[in-house]
Amino acid sequence: MQANTFLNWVNQNLSTAGKEPIDTLVTGFADGTKLVPLVEALQGRKLGRLNKPLTEHHRLENINMALQALAEDNVRLVNIGAEDIVKENVKLILGLVWHMILKYQIGKTSKIPSKKLMLYWVQAVIPSLNIINFTTDWNSGIALQ
């Protein structure tokens, strides 16, 4: 469900940039030719010239261009590098997309930090659970029901 939601968000942003959608998050970013246009659409600027992804080196350069632009825009990149995307590491790719959503979708509408804004939303939606963090308060799984 999370992957489908993230995929829809990515494809919506790609379509506003006039780009074709991707089929899956795992393979869709593996050569960087969709990740760079996505970042360009989110940041509203051109990043540079894409390489034709003929070799792994070209794929890595494309992805590094996007990751560098995200890092410069203060998107949190935790333990993810171009190699992880080329090797299609699902968990890290989902984390990357989540941080892009936090920065460019949730964070753009408020001066409140994205994580705090999400916490306020969860507290408003399920006040009976008294959720005060995104770690231990989720351990029981009750908030996910």
Rank of each mutant, 00 (worst) to 15 (best):
A3D: 03
N4A: 13
T5Q: 08
F6K: 08
N8V: 02
W9L: 00
Q12M: 05
N13G: 03
L14W: 05
S15L: 13
T16I: 13
A17D: 03
A17H: 09
A17W: 13
G18A: 10
G18R: 07
G18C: 06
P21V: 09
P21W: 07
I22S: 01
D23A: 14
D23L: 09
F29I: 02
D31F: 01
G32P: 00
G32E: 00
G32A: 05
T33P: 00
T33R: 11
L35Y: 04
L38K: 06
E40M: 09
Q43N: 10
Q43S: 06
G44H: 06
R45W: 02
K46H: 11
L47P: 00
G48P: 01
G48R: 01
R49Y: 07
L50P: 01
L50T: 08
L50S: 11
N51S: 11
L54N: 14
L54A: 11
H57A: 14
E61S: 06
E61D: 13
E61I: 08
N62G: 11
N62L: 14
I63A: 03
N64V: 05
N64Y: 05
M65W: 00
A66I: 07
L67M: 08
A71M: 08
A71F: 07
E72K: 14
D73Q: 15
R76G: 10
V78G: 03
G81M: 03
A82W: 02
E83A: 09
E83W: 07
D84M: 12
I85N: 01
V86C: 04
N89M: 07
N89I: 03
V90A: 11
V90L: 12
L92R: 10
I93W: 04
W98E: 13
M100S: 03
M100D: 02
I101L: 09
Q105C: 04
G107T: 10
K108H: 11
T109Y: 14
K111F: 13
K111H: 10
P113M: 13
S114M: 14
K115D: 14
K115C: 14
K115L: 15
K115Q: 15
L117R: 10
L119S: 07
Y120H: 13
Y120R: 14
W121A: 15
P127F: 02
L129D: 00
N130H: 12
N130L: 11
N130G: 12
N139M: 12
G141R: 03
G141F: 06
L144E: 15
L144W: 12
